[in-house]
């Protein structure tokens, strides 16, 4: 039983770190600033959830799990807020997204 749990935890941590790694690659090879944010946000969404979730299974039910849950909660609340602040600051400073199409809210099927 313990072995199975540990295997699941290891699998979660590994797959989480793969998402993190892919996000790092994305932040490096995407063509412009706004698309690079999408790459970086890959490291900020499912990656931490899987890594910290896996560690929570390793830790079992204890104070450590509570602390890991707190770290996860803080990351999931602060990282999109920081990303929005960054994207909005860049937009207001006049940094234009490259090659975008605008899709208004009320058009029938867009573009």
């Amino acid at each position: 039983m313990n072995g199975i749990l540990e295997a699941i935890a290891g699998l979660l941590v590994i797959s989480g770190s793969l998402f993190v790694l892919a996000g790092g690659i994305g932040a490096l090879r995407m063509p412009d600033f706004y698309t690079r944010i999408h790459g970086a946000s890959l490291t900020d969404s499912l990656g931490p959830v899987l890594v910290l979730g896996g560690l929570m299974i390793y830790a079992g039910l204890s104070l450590i799990t509570v602390k890991l849950a707190a770290v996860m909660l803080f990351l999931l609340v602060t990282s999109p807020t920081a990303t929005y602040a960054l994207a909005n600051a860049a937009l207001l400073a006049g940094l234009k997204p490259e090659g975008v199409v605008r899709m208004p809210a009320d058009s029938e099927d867009g573009v």
Binding site: V20, A27, A40, D44, L86, A89
Partner: peptide, 21 residues
Amino acid sequence: SVYDRVLAVNMFGTKTVLLIA
């Protein structure tokens, strides 16, 4: 741009948190 650099530093920071854990 500066914003690319801030993005990278932010990413570095959140990855540090994961690494410490």
